[in-house]
Design a protein around this nucleic acid. Structure first.
Length: 611
RNA sequence: GCCCCUAUAGUUUAACGGAUAGAAUGCUGGCCUCCGAAGCCGGUGAUCUGCGUUCGAAUCGCAGUAGGGGCGCCA
C-alpha cells in the first residue's frame, strides 16, 4: 500500500528536482517534515547544491523557489534562508482526508515480506512470578514483535524456558519438600518457596542435596524429572496468566532440557569442526572447549577466550546459546518435537517442545532477535563472533541483541533470592492499575464493561510507561509514573481515540458519502491533524526497523495532542457549525481515529471506544 | 588494564548533522448552562566540562568528570 505521504513526497521531489536540476532521488532525500511553522514539507537541497558548486545556499534556494512548477497540491513555495518550504493546498488536504477516512484496520501496514523473523523473550526462570523488571523485557519483546508484524514481517515469538538451572533445581527441591502450599497463584507460591530454599542452601548438607538433584534432572530419566517438568510447566502457565492480562503472547516455548536432548550433540559436533574452537590441554582453561576470540574488540581484555564446555563435560550458558542460535537459523538437521501448551486469549495456540509430539515449522529464521538485558552484551557478541568464525557472516549480521536496561527500585535491585520482588510483581502492578483506572471511569458505566475498560487502560498505561522510553534508559520504579493516566501516557492517546469514537457515534445521522466537500477551506488545526495522521505508515516503518517502540509512542502522543487541539478549536457537532464544516470535520475525525487505532494496535495497546 | 551504556528544564524524558532543543510533570494564571476537563490556552524553566571537525553539533572525533554494567568452567 502506498500512502498519501509517499505520493506527496514524490510529487514534491519531482517539482524540486525540475527546479533545481538535480536527480529526483536526491530531491526526495532532501525532503522532511519541518518542526515549527516553516511550511508543510521542506527541502534542504540548497545545502547539497551549495556544497557541490561552492555557492551560497541562500541564493540557490531563492533560485529554486522561483522556478518551482505548479501542482494542484502545492499552494505555494517559499524560500526561508537556505531552506525551501512548500505549503500545501486545500485540494491536497481534501484528498488526504477522503483517502484516509476510507482506510481500515490495515492503515499503515507494510506489505507482506518474505522469510521469518524470530524473536525470543522474556525467558524468565520458571520458579517465581514476573516482577516489573521481567515485564519490561516481555513488553519490549511483545511490542517489537507486533511492530514487525505490522510492518509486514512474518514473526515467530519464542520463549526459552530454563528448566535445568540451579535456581530451578532449588525450587524443585523446595516444592518436593514443602508440597503444594496455599497461594492464589502457583508462580507466587514457588517464588515464596524459593526465597526459603535460598536460605536453606546456606547449609552445606542441603546444598549437597540440591546439587545431586540438579545432576539427576540433567540426566532426564528419573521420576523426579517428570515431576520437575510438571512443576515448571505449571509455573509458566501461571506466569502466562499474567502475560495475557498485558496482551503478551507467544508461539512456542523451547525447554532447555529439550535442547540438550534433541539438538545439543549435533550442534557441538558442528562447533568442533571450526579451527577457532579448541580443546584446551593446558593453562587455566585446561580440558575445556574454548572459543578463541580474536580481533581488535577483544584485545586488552583480561581473558577474551570463552569457555563453551567445562572441564567436567557440561555446557556453559554461552555454549548452549550458540547451539540454540544455530538451530534458530536452521543450521542444524536435528528437529524438536512439539506438543500443545496453551490456548491463548488472542485465539492462538501456543506450543512447547516436548519428548513426545510431532514435528512443526518452528525455527529456521533469517533474522533472530534476542531480548536480553544489557549486561549480557559480551556473551551475545561472542555468539555473533563464533558465527562469523564459522562462515555464517550473514547470520551474524542478522543476530540482533535487543538490549535494555533494568528496572530498579529506589532502594536497589530486584533479587529473586532475597524476595525483594514482593510487592512489585506484574500482577500487583496490574491490580493497582485497574483500581486507579476504575476510579476515573465515566460514571455511567458499570459491571463488566467497566471492568474491561479499567483492564485495558491499566495494561495500556503500564505498557506505555515501560516501552515508551528508550530501552537504554534505566527505570527507577515509581507507582505514579508506571500508572500515569494523564499527560504522556497511553490513556491520553486512548482518550483521544474515545473522543473520536463518540463524535462519530453521535453523528450517525450524517451519511459518510456526504462528508466529501468541495472547496472547503481547512483551518490550521485541521491541517495539522491530517498531516500528522498521514505520517503513521512512515513512523511505524521506522520504529519497527529500529526495534524502537518508543518512537511510535512518541508519535501517538503527538497525534493525540493534535486531535485534542482540533477538538478544542473546531467543533464538529455543535449547533452553530456550518453544514460544510461539520461534514469535512467528520471526515477528519474518522481519519484521525483510524490513525490512532492503527498506531495503538501496532504496539499492542487496545484502542477502546469509551473510557 | 580494556570494553559497553547513560548524562538535556526542579523531576521523567524526545530530537535522520539542519531553522526558535519538543513534550510531560511540578509551580503558576485562565477555559466546562459540556460534540467527554483522563482535555485545551498562557507563564516558568534544560543540552556534564574542555578542545576539535563542519556553512551548521545535544547529535560526530579526542581528552576529561559523574553514575551503572561487563571482560567467570557464576547464573
Amino acid at each position: 500500500m502506498r500512502g498519501m505521504r509517499d505520493e506527496l513526497y514524490s510529487a514534491v521531489a519531482k517539482l524540486v528536482a525540475q527546479a533545481a536540476g538535480c536527480a529526483q532521488e536526491e530531491a526526495l532525500t532532501s525532503l522532511e517534515k519541518p518542526r515549527g511553522q516553516f511550511g508543510d514539507v521542506s527541502s534542504k537541497i540548497a545545502f547539497e547544491i551549495a556544497k557541490r558548486e561552492k555557492k551560497n545556499p541562500v541564493q540557490i534556494a531563492a533560485g529554486i523557489c522561483a522556478k518551482i512548477g505548479k501542482h494542484e497540491w502545492v499552494e505555494k513555495a517559499a524560500a526561508a534562508g537556505p531552506y525551501l518550504n512548500v505549503l500545501l493546498s486545500d485540494a491536497f488536504y481534501a484528498q488526504l482526508a477522503q483517502g484516509m477516512a476510507q482506510e481500515g484496520v490495515a492503515f499503515g501496514r507494510g506489505s507482506a515480506k518474505k522469510g521469518k523473523v524470530l524473536i525470543e523473550f522474556p525467558s524468565v526462570n520458571p520458579n517465581k512470578p514476573w516482577h516489573i523488571g521481567h515485564l519490561r523485557n516481555a513488553l519490549l519483546g511483545d511490542s517489537v514483535a507486533r511492530m514487525l508484524s505490522f510492518a509486514g514481517e512474518n514473526v515467530e515469538r519464542q520463549d526459552y524456558i530454563d528448566d535445568l538451572g540451579l535456581q530451578v533445581a532449588q525450587s524443585v527441591y523446595g516444592f518436593l519438600e514443602f508440597g503444594e502450599e496455599d497461594w492464589k497463584k502457583f508462580d507466587h507460591m514457588l517464588g515464596e518457596q524459593y526465597v526459603k530454599v535460598a536460605k536453606m542452601v546456606e547449609d552445606a548438607e542441603v546444598e549437597e542435596k540440591v546439587r545431586a538433584l540438579l545432576k539427576e534432572l540433567e540426566g532426564g530419566k528419573s521420576a523426579r524429572c517428570a515431576q520437575a517438568r510438571h512443576m515448571v510447566e505449571r509455573c509458566v502457565l501461571a506466569q502466562y496468566e499474567t502475560a495475557y492480562k498485558f496482551g503478551i503472547f507467544h508461539d512456542v516455548l523451547v525447554f532447555e532440557s529439550d535442547i540438550m536432548r534433541e539438538i545439543f550433540s549435533e550442534g557441538l559436533a558442528l562447533l568442533r569442526t571450526n579451527s577457532a574452537i579448541v580443546q584446551e590441554e593446558g593453562g587455566k582453561n585446561s580440558r575445556c572447549l574454548v572459543a578463541k576470540m580474536q580481533g581488535e574488540e577483544f584485545e586488552g581484555m583480561k581473558s577474551p577466550d570463552k569457555v563453551l564446555i567445562r572441564s567436567d563435560g557440561t555446557a556453559t550458558y554461552t555454549g548452549k546459546d550458540v547451539i540454540f542460535q544455530l538451530w534458530k537459523f536452521g543450521k542444524l538437521g536435528s528437529k524438536f518435537k512439539y506438543a500443545h501448551f496453551a490456548k491463548q486469549p488472542n485465539g492462538k495456540e501456543c506450543y512447547k517442545t516436548s519428548g513426545e509430539g510431532s514435528e512443526m515449522h518452528f525455527g529456521g529464521a533469517q533474522k533472530v532477535i534476542n531480548v536480553i538485558g544489557m549486561e549480557q552484551a559480551y556473551p551475545q557478541k561472542v555468539i555473533a563472533e563464533i558465527f562469523r568464525l564459522m562462515g555464517f557472516a550473514q547470520e551474524a549480521e542478522n543476530s540482533v541483541h535487543l538490549s535494555y536496561e533494568h528496572v530498579g527500585l529506589a532502594g536497589g535491585k530486584f533479587s529473586g533470592r532475597e524476595g525483594s520482588w514482593k510487592g512489585f510483581t506484574a500482577d500487583e502492578l496490574f491490580e493497582e492499575g485497574e483500581r486507579r483506572a476504575a476510579e476515573k471511569i465515566n460514571g455511567e458505566m458499570e459491571g463488566e464493561e467497566k471492568r474491561k475498560i479499567a483492564a485495558a487502560v491499566a495494561a495500556g498505561a503500564i505498557r506505555f510507561a515501560l516501552v515508551g522510553v528508550s530501552p537504554q534508559k534505566k527505570i527507577v520504579f515509581d507507582w505514579d509514573k508506571a500508572l500515569s493516566l494523564e499527560g504522556d501516557s497511553a490513556p491520553y492517546v486512548m482518550y483521544a481515540h474515545a473522543r473520536c469514537a463518540r463524535i462519530l457515534e453521535k453523528a450517525k445521522g450524517v451519511a459518510e458519502k456526504e462528508w466529501d466537500v468541495a472547496n472547503y477551506s481547512y483551518n490550521k488545526e485541521e491541517k495539522e491533524l491530517l498531516k500528522m495522521a498521514m505520517e503513521l505508515p512512515f513512523v511505524a516503518q521506522k520504529a519497527s526497523a529500529e526495534c524502537q517502540p518508543h518512537v511510535l509512542c512518541d508519535y501517538l502522543v503527538g497525534l493525540a495532542s493534535m486531535l485534542n487541539k482540533f477538538y478544542n478549536s473546531s467543533p464538529v457537532l455543535a449547533a452553530d457549525v456550518p453544514k460544510e464544516a461539520r461534514q469535512a470535520r467528520l471526515q477528519i475525525v474518522k481519519a484521525a481515529k483510524i490513525a490512532l487505532a492503527c498506531g495503538l494496535g501496532a504496539i499492542g495497546i487496545e484502542a477502546i471506544e469509551r473510557m
